[in-house]
Write a protein that binds this DNA or RNA. Structure first.
Length: 490
RNA sequence: GUCCCCGUCGUCUAGCCCGGCCUAGGACACCGCCCUUUCACGGCGAUAACACGGGUUCAAAUCCCGUCGGGGACGCCA
């Protein structure tokens, strides 16, 4: 029998609930959905699952949208569950009318505790499932609040089954599924109801979501049946877990799981996407660096793993080293004129405002030296600082030398630089010759100049740096350095 | 507790479905060497894993059973 969903072009959905910022696990689920949709020329639906009035916030909605926009992956349709309440309620009533659900008048929150701990799983509230329709109607009419529960077909030896695209054949006895709620006592739909009703109504063909929903799927199977529709295909993806093995959570792990943390630290979205894809999925060859196009071409659900993946962050280092490495790779893969403008906001945040031209000149000197975009500031601030940050004059002293030697180097440099043209080759030639005439190794000559000009020992290549800085600034800084050395000798 | 899922280097993974080519491959991180005006890039190299126990087989990381370990679900949260 042909699979009805296989013929249609796929429709997938990402359905975050706006109860907090977009976190890395959610981002990855979104990316997998996006990749699946694009790979198969299907449609990606973004649906805000905002049926929990208590916990939803507008700030979360904004945070999710800005996170998604930053990723740069677009969706095709957009819905909000809160605008579809009428449909949810209508379907709940239809299910009730078919006798597949019942009213539960047990007060909310009255039953916590006693079943979870000792006597096994909770299945239903005593008395409510068997309430006669007459009494149920009477109590409802009298205004007594109730939740609507799905009447799981228990006691018939039924087995609920589905084939997960990632986890394979799944089955569970219906007797082990609890009577989950469809409507709350305030008549708001629950997640299960709203989700299934919308998935059916939006004609979703493939549900790609976190593995934490694997067991919920049995409830959804029953619900789709109650709704009278074929269930979509399911594909559960392994969870992203913290180094301690627990599933990533905003509450326990804090801002390190927020995508804005990555964005603000200077991850490139394409690197972030690349990294996330490699957690729980691989192209099955040795590629690690993949562009979006390559990811799209290579992505299949069959290649998704089943084991949870650890995001390797620590207290003092919030980012997985592999994510950082991939980011550095993507930075290096960027053309200078693409990279340069992306650096600008990070300088601005540090109070530095180089012109686009200045930044463009500096970018090639630091491109291979930064792992995160924000590193650009510490790597290149000296280009744009009118006054160098104070440093220890002892740094100016070269290997196997003393302050007097450093002074001699700088004085010689001052003379030579006064007449040398400030391009790489001229500087290289002039300074090497100067070193020779002083009887010094090149490094002994260059190091004091580097520190004088950059204010520190580790910096981009000297001649390119000086060429960008220009003669005036270089001479001024070298003079200043020489003066600071005088205090050391006297 | 009940049910579901998972278990290859520290981490991400290839290999597992279709046993032999696996003295288990790649990557990150770490360490060492080379390149080099510093840093970085790049190159080379080293350390490092089939959770355990049975079984099937001429042969098991690969198939079967069990044990242990980890995770998830069990909410009028999603």
């Amino acid at each position: 029998m042909p699979d009805p969903s296989a013929a249609k072009t796929p429709r997938v959905r990402f359905a975050p609930s706006p109860t907090g910022y977009l976190h890395v696990g959610g981002a990855r689920t979104f990316i997998f959905n996006w990749l699946y949709a694009r790979h198969n020329h299907g449609t990606l639906v973004l649906r805000l699952d905002d049926t929990d009035l208590e916990r939803n916030t507008e700030a979360s909605v904004q945070s999710i949208f800005s996170g998604l926009r930053w990723l740069g992956l677009s969706w095709d349709e957009e819905y909000k569950q809160s605008e579809r309440l009428a449909l949810h309620r209508r379907q709940a009533e239809a299910i009730f009318a078919k006798g597949l659900a019942y009213r539960d008048f047990t007060p909310a929150h009255a039953d916590s505790g006693e079943h979870s701990s000792s006597q096994g799983a909770w299945l239903f509230n005593p008395g409510m499932r068997e309430l006669s329709l007459e009494e149920s109607d009477r109590r409802a009419a009298s205004g007594e609040p109730f939740a609507l529960r799905y009447r799981v077909p228990r006691g018939q030896g039924r087995t609920l089954r589905f084939t997960d695209a990632v986890y394979g054949e799944q089955s569970k006895l219906a007797d082990e599924v609890e009577d989950f709620a469809l409507l709350r006592s305030d008549s708001m739909p629950t997640y299960h109801l709203a989700s299934c009703v919308d998935d059916a109504d939006l004609r979703i063909t493939h549900i790609i979501r976190g593995q934490d929903h694997l067991t919920n799927t049995f409830k959804h199977l029953a619900l789709f049946e109650a709704l009278g529709v074929q269930p979509p295909q399911f594909a559960h993806v392994p969870l992203l877990v913290a180094p301690d093995g627990a599933k990533l959570s905003k509450r326990r792990h804090g801002p390190v799981v927020s995508v804005t943390t990555y964005r603000d630290a200077g991850f490139l979205p394409q690197a972030f996407v690349n990294f996330l894809c490699l957690l729980g999925w691989s192209p099955k060859d040795d590629r690690e660096f993949l562009t979006l196009d390559e990811l799209t071409a290579a992505f299949t659900l069959e290649a998704v793993n089943r084991a949870n993946a650890v995001v390797n962050f620590t207290e003092d280092d919030p980012f997985d080293p592999k994510a950082v490495w991939l980011n550095a790779e993507h930075i290096r893969a960027l053309a200078v004129d693409e990279l340069s403008p992306r650096l600008q906001p990070f300088f601005a945040a540090a109070g530095l405002h180089p012109s686009p031209e200045e930044l463009l000149a500096v970018t090639p000197l630091i491109r291979e030296r930064i792992k995160l975009l924000r590193d650009a500031v510490s790597a290149a601030d000296f280009f744009f600082l009118p006054q160098l940050a104070p440093y220890d004059p002892a740094e100016l002293i070269p290997q196997k030398g003393d302050a007097a030697l450093a002074i001699r180097v700088l004085q010689t440099a001052l003379e030579v630089l006064a007449t040398t043209s400030f391009d790489h080759d001229s500087l290289d030639h002039a300074l090497r010759q100067a070193a020779q005439s002083l009887g010094l190794k090149a490094g002994q000559m260059f190091q004091p100049i580097r520190v004088a000009v950059c204010g520190r020992k580790n910096a981009p290549p000297l001649f390119e740096t000086m060429a960008v800085l220009g003669r005036d600034l270089c001479l001024a800084r070298i003079r200043q350095a020489e003066a600071s050395l005088q205090s050391l000798v006297s």
